[in-house]
């Protein structure tokens, strides 16, 4: 194969007009090392640059230079620390910093800032704990939503609406229910249960109501609760929520606050 096809590719490439497979082909050729093409590209770039150099000059908007200088000043380049003359400056500065630092560490900080540092450390620790708690809560919430979404993908999953009753007519709720996997209840506008009590969920089929777990609501009146599947996969006809002692009871005793129809 002669080199001639590559002369054409190189010229087109230098113009930025090479496209498609030919571009990839030429780049492979270049990567393999080709002095002839390198030279063609170099000379072409100079020739094309000469076209631009032959045009009249124009002063660009001054804000471009300002922006560039600001941008450069904002990035502290590690390259700055390398040149020889600066080394001495750095050595002196470092020594000075060490002396000052030693004075501070030895006396000043110890006496004056110890208490404050201790307080800051405690605050930081408290903050960390809170962040960890928040994170755990969020993860839990995400897991619930994920589970709910997974359930919703299943065509046998039902979504049941709960209506507020008696003491809390504003309350609303939804149960996402799968006959085999169980489901989740989501409630809103439900006031916090009175002290010493909790909300208890019931599943009602053909027989007596079955306890389906206790839950609480947050300050905004919202709560979620995972519902285990009913043993034997029995059909659930009604979901209900009552106020019960916080330890929970095997059969409903308190007022009903939410129920499906």
């Amino acid at each position: 194969m002669t080199h001639e096809p590559f002369d054409t590719l190189a010229a087109t490439y230098a113009l930025g007009a090479l496209d498609g497979d030919e571009r990839a082909q030429f780049e492979r050729h270049l990567a393999g090392g080709c002095d002839v093409c390198e030279e063609t590209l170099r000379e072409s770039a100079e020739a094309l640059a000469a076209l631009a150099l032959a045009e009249p000059r124009a002063i660009p908007p001054p804000e471009v230079k300002d922006a560039l200088l600001r941008r450069i000043a904002a990035t502290t380049s590690p390259r700055l620390e390398r040149p020889q003359p600066r080394r001495l400056v750095w050595a002196v500065a470092t020594l000075a910093a060490m002396i000052v630092g030693a004075a501070f560490t030895g006396t000043f900080v110890a006496s004056r800032y110890e208490g404050r540092l201790g307080q800051m450390a405690r605050e930081a620790a408290a903050l960390r704990t809170r962040v960890q708690q928040d994170e755990a809560a969020l993860r839990e919430q995400i897991a619930v939503y994920q589970a709910a979404v997974d359930l919703l993908r299943d065509p046998t999953t039902r979504v049941v609406t709960l209506h507020g009753l008696g003491p809390s007519p504003e309350a609303t709720g939804r149960v996402i229910w799968h006959p085999v996997s169980g489901g989740h209840v989501f409630v809103a506008n439900l006031p916090a249960a009175p002290a010493g009590s909790a909300y208890e969920l019931w599943t009602i089929g053909d027989g007596a109501p079955q306890p389906a777990g206790l839950f609480r609501v947050d300050a905004s009146g919202r709560g979620t609760h995972r519902i285990a599947a009913v043993q034997g996969g029995k059909t659930v006809k009604v979901f209900a929520v009552t106020i019960e002692p916080e330890a929970g009871v095997p059969a409903p005793t308190g007022p009903m606050v939410l129920a499906s129809k």
């Binding site: 002369d7 054409t8 010229a11 087109t12 230098a14 113009l15 007009a17 000379e43 072409s44 100079e46 020739a47 094309l48 000469a50 076209l51």
Partner: peptide, 11 residues
């Protein structure tokens, strides 16, 4: 393109 660029390079 090839001929044109050849010419420009010569110039």
């Amino acid at each position: 393109i090839r001929l044109g660029l050849e010419r420009l390079r010569d110039v």
